[in-house]
Design a protein around this nucleic acid. Structure first.
Length: 514
RNA sequence: GGGCCGCUAGCUCAGUUGGAAGAGCAGCUGACUCUUAAUCAGCGGGCCGUAGGUUCGAUCCCUACGCGGCCCA
């Protein structure tokens, strides 16, 4: 109890008095028969007289959000998963339980059975005929008017954030709805939803640093996946011509408003499709989701209108750079001139910058100046082959691949390509990746012999795409940070406030080991 | 990794050339059976992020550290 707030201690004492009076403060046999939203839906149109003529009782349960108490009566606002509703408690109706009912606190859960009426100010209200304490809350709720604002507290104690900030609940409901709509869209197109390994012996399918873990029984290191790509393609090879997976990827990188080390990715693969088909599919799917969610394909994001109405703009990566900088074709078509230009737009380059290939230089230039200027949804195409070891070569220009990135609000939302299905070419690409890895690029992809073995059986012509779900949800819920669309974003652990008992336990453990 | 900003009561926030730490809400006591951020009267509640330093004296100034936010890489 030491270190607890005064109010916490008072509530614990109150809890004790409730128990002494013979009332169980944590019963679990109360069954509501109505949710609050349905009560509004069915009865909010009714007049005072309509309600007086109605004989039906409603049994509801919820968390107490606010109490306005009089001597022998009280108005209490309760909230369930669907809505909030005012309840009227009167001493003369509640008799035995009144002493407890009048002592409830904001944060408690209560159950009420009663009849609907309208107050003098015309608010639909449930007049309690019986009252049941369902859970005593010990920690006080945040301020009723301002709610919980402290960003760190909101992330660390998301449960409190959700209790008191309805707009936060709404964001996460929309997140779930978006994922539901994606599933429906793909299921309707005969895609098969699958699950592939999160723990992999070879972390391939993307350029990123993985987390490492260890399997004790097999005594082997494993990586948390950075992408499901190579497994989903194995499934296409196996005959599942349309597959998708919505699941977590893990990348061992820093956090930002755009990055969380674990994030949710949709990946889908369709045989006999190419990357242009996927552009159409993406336009159709995302604009449809915006329409379902907002009733419009135009969505406000951080003060800017994003127009998801199909078709979306398409630019080659060079066009995107030319459109948003003073670079010229002459510069971009020459490796050394491009490098010089890159140094102007990005003076602080990673180590080994002078050895960058022409293709990588173009991508670096795009990321430095092109990407952030693409606000409306735009497909950026014609990526260089050096940065695309899993993509099919372009038939007309072997330095390019049939790939696009979807950029919106200045950030990458999706990445897709016609899949490389030539096993000989794929092996060569892996070999050059391994060389880059040996040269110090720890994001270059490792050799995956089993994947090659699979591809050697023949993979049908296929296109595949990954869509960052968190970022898509950000755009569709007007959220400025990825942490606003991830229920429990990764934070550093809080400063330890170990109790003496814990300290002793730990010391004992240390002592035993020593 | 670098820069800037923040950390004060359960919550939202004030505050002090460096001189006994404040408000509102929440809480407690009392009044009140139709309130809407209910009202009225009274009361309690603080390691001012942590640790050093400067000082007669530090929540305030300095240093380091921790956590968070934003920006940059």
């Amino acid at each position: 109890m030491e270190g607890r707030s005064q109010e916490f201690k008072q509530r614990v004492e109150k809890l004790g008095r409730i128990r002494e009076s013979g009332v169980n403060p944590y019963p679990n046999d109360f069954k509501p028969d109505s949710c609050l939203k349905d009560i509004f839906k069915d009865h909010n149109g009714k007049t005072k007289e309509d309600l007086e003529g109605m004989d039906s009782c409603f049994t509801v349960a919820g968390r107490v959000l606010a109490v306005r108490s009089f001597g022998k009566a009280a108005f209490v606002k309760i909230q369930d998963r669907t809505a909030s509703l005012q309840v009227y408690l009167q001493r003369d109706n509640l008799t035995d339980i009144w002493p407890i009912a009048k002592k409830i606190d904001a944060g408690d859960f209560i159950g009420i059975k009663g009849k609907l009426f309208r107050t003098k100010t015309d608010e639909l209200t449930l007049d309690a005929e019986s009252f049941t304490l369902l859970t005593k809350g010990l920690s006080p709720l945040p301020e009723k008017w301002h709610g919980l604002k402290d960003v760190e507290a909101r992330y660390r104690q998301r449960y409190v954030d959700l209790m008191v900030n309805p707009d936060v609940r709404e964001v996460f409901r929309k997140r779930t709805e978006i994922i539901r709509l994606i599933r429906k869209y793909l299921n309707d197109r005969d895609y098969l939803e699958v699950e592939t390994p999160m723990m992999q012996h070879i972390a391939g399918g993307a350029a990123a640093r993985p987390f490492v873990t260890h399997h004790n029984a097999l005594d082997t290191d494993l990586y948390l996946r950075i992408a499901p790509e190579l497994y989903l393609k194995r499934l296409v090879i196996g005959g599942f011509e349309r597959v998708f997976e919505i699941n977590r990827n893990f990348r061992n990188e820093g956090t930002s408003t755009q990055h969380n080390p674990e994030f949710t990715m949709l990946e889908f693969y369709e045989a006999y499709a190419d990357f242009e088909d996927l552009m159409k599919l993406t336009e159709d799917m995302v604009s449809g989701i915006a329409q379902e969610l907002h009733g419009s394909t135009k969505v406000m994001y951080q003060g800017t209108e994003l127009d998801f109405t199909a078709p979306w703009k398409r630019l080659t990566i060079k066009e995107a750079v030319l459109e948003h900088s003073d670079a010229t074709e002459e510069i971009l078509n020459d490796r050394d001139k491009s490098l010089e230009f890159l140094r102007e737009v990005n003076p602080r380059l990673p180590e080994g910058w002078d050895k960058l290939s022409h293709g990588k230089i173009i991508v670096e230039i795009f990321e430095a100046i092109g990407e952030e200027n693409l606000i409306q949804p735009t497909f950026v195409t014609h990526f260089p082959i050096e940065v695309s070891p899993l993509s099919r070569k372009n038939d007309k220009d072997e330095t390019l691949v049939d790939r696009f990135e979807l950029i919106c609000a200045g950030r990458e939302i999706a990445n897709a390509f016609s899949e490389l299905n030539d096993p000989i070419d794929q092996r060569e690409r892996f070999v050059s990746q391994v060389k880059e890895r040996e040269a110090g690029d720890d994001e270059a992809q490792p050799m995956d012999e089993d994947f090659l073995r699979a591809m050697e059986y023949g993979m049908p012509p296929t296109a595949g795409e990954g869509i960052g779900i968190d970022r898509l949800v950000m755009l569709l819920t007007d959220s400025p940070s990825i942490r606003d669309v991830i229920l429990f974003p990764l934070l550093k652990p809080e400063a330890k406030q170990e109790s003496k008992e814990q300290e002793e336990t730990q010391n004992n453990k240390k002592g035993k080991k020593a």
